[in-house]
Nucleic acid binder design. Sequence first.
RNA 1: GCGCCCGUAGCUCAACUGGAUAGAGCAUCGGCCUUCUAAGCCGAGGGUUGAAGGUUCGAGUCCUUCCGGGCGCGCCA
Length: 586
Amino acid sequence: MRPLAGPKVMNLKKYLDNEFERALTALGQADATAVVKQASKPEFGHYQANGIMGAAKKAKKNPRELAEQVAEYIREGKLKDLLELEIAGPGFINIRLNTAFLCRELENMTSDNRLGVTRFASEKILIDYSSPNLAKEMHIGHLRSTAIGDAAVRVLEFLGHEVIRANHVGDWGAQFGSLLAYMDKLESEGAQLATELKDLEIFYQSASSLFKSDEAFAARAREFVVKLQSGDKKCLGLWSRFIEESIRHCQAIYDLLDISLTPGDVKAESAYNDMLDPTLAELEEKGLITLSEGAKCVFLDEFIGKEGEPIPAIVQKSDGGYPYMATDIAAAKFRGQELGVDQALYFVDGRQSLHLNQLYAIARKAGFISAEQNFRHIPFGTILNKEGRPFKTRDGGAVKLADVADEAVTRALSLIGDKNPDLTEDEKQNIARIVGIGAIKYAELSKNRKTDYIFDWDTMLSFEGNTAPYLQYAYTRIRSIFRRADTTPEGINHPFALIEAAEISLALKLLQYPETLESVIEDYQANILCNYLFEVSQLFMSFYESCPVLKADEATRGARLRLCDLSARTLQHGLGLLGIKTVEQM
RNA sequence: GCGCCCGUAGCUCAACUGGAUAGAGCAUCGGCCUUCUAAGCCGAGGGUUGAAGGUUCGAGUCCUUCCGGGCGCGCCA
């Protein structure tokens, strides 16, 4: 099949939508939208234009007649050799792309190292994500913000944006009192702090149980809070040793999980301490502060509570201390004015939506954020336990993130031992890590971020069905074909040929990579990309079963090898954007 | 009480933002390894989309009310 000449289309859906919109305009329906979408069923072709019915209604025309006119217009235009149209139902236009057209697009995609994805105009976008509290060990709840935020970072960067990773870790506040008091106690008892801090989890627990059981210790802990805030030298020394160690622990988890955060992305709460006084003074100057019950509050009309009373946002406590609202306002000011971001996206648990909406409103009112700057909360649901109750960090029921990761790698390792005993120990270890970590990240990423979901070890660590290992497995099957063929993708010059239904379905799906990425960032839903990659894998698996590659005749073999290669590239790239690696064998 | 989020197959989730007969994966049942890795493939069963109204050519999706769940709502973060 000879590829058609023509311009690069890249985003099929957008391209078709534009063409149908032009047809509508030419037919006098300038304000109508074409609403071209991927076909909901294979019988309806590849795409469908749903906007004709709405347009006909506005123009008081018969929808099927208008559809006929639009179809006629398209059939006579530049697309005439590229597709077939069919009017269906009350006024749908079903679109079927010709295989010659698909082949041409496959050539374009293959020759593009961005797989057909064009760059957007670049904005400066800050992503606030992960942001663990250093007074506690990272638990399973942190995985959502961390994995989803990191995927958003990678996708936005790939689309050409300048992304600032912001790890707003909690390193300040009352909960550090007992930790510092405990450090002080250990030191006075002659213990080696360095060794004690090696296992932070034990350290956290000891400090916390002492706080509960020992009155005198609790009192000292409260003293340490005051000392810390007043800048006591010795206290600050203890504090920074603790913070350093704690950040090291977080970084180890990020590295293990293939999260792209580095120590350089940490900008902790305490980094804004010097900004708190002047920021508050500015709020006061602008008349936003009201003194209420001894605390400095901001009341805004948008936030009304019971019986119409305004809800306060406390920016300074009656004891003079600053709550996290103050820090967050200072951070917003820094991001808005110093960094000058176009957007700041906060990937934070949905339960904080009131707090964040208050924050944005205050920062806006104070002039810290301009009208053009988009500050937005990207919320997600809570992780529940098997009984459907939220995990509580206090009740000891929280699952440590490090434990989940270890268990995933262990399970993967034992499975690899069964499936592929010939691999070396090093290979097994490496594959186990990539597969196990991929599985738990994908378990988070593949769900709609807004809904609560139930944590279950077996679901999260499953390696079958719609999971990362399934996608990774599809990739290894392709790589295996190339190993057996003893050739590289670059060495093949045969043109694409789409004959079997499985080949056409797979090809079309691959060509939809660009439009998929665009819909991912419409509302930062990584699950759209997961779904897409799963569909690519499913279609590849079908193709793999029904279309032999290596045993086919020379031309078919070449064409299929190229389709395999494009599948592999798309899978590897898409998984990469999710922060999940691929392996050559598993 | 007020506000936000949610309710889809036994379970976990989709449904491209108003489109055609609501789809996958687990689990269950039945087939497929002398053929490129069976972490796979092919097939079957499984639904009053929490309930009732409304908007219109057309509703899981939009509006109202109700039921059920989660979370917020002055000095924790």
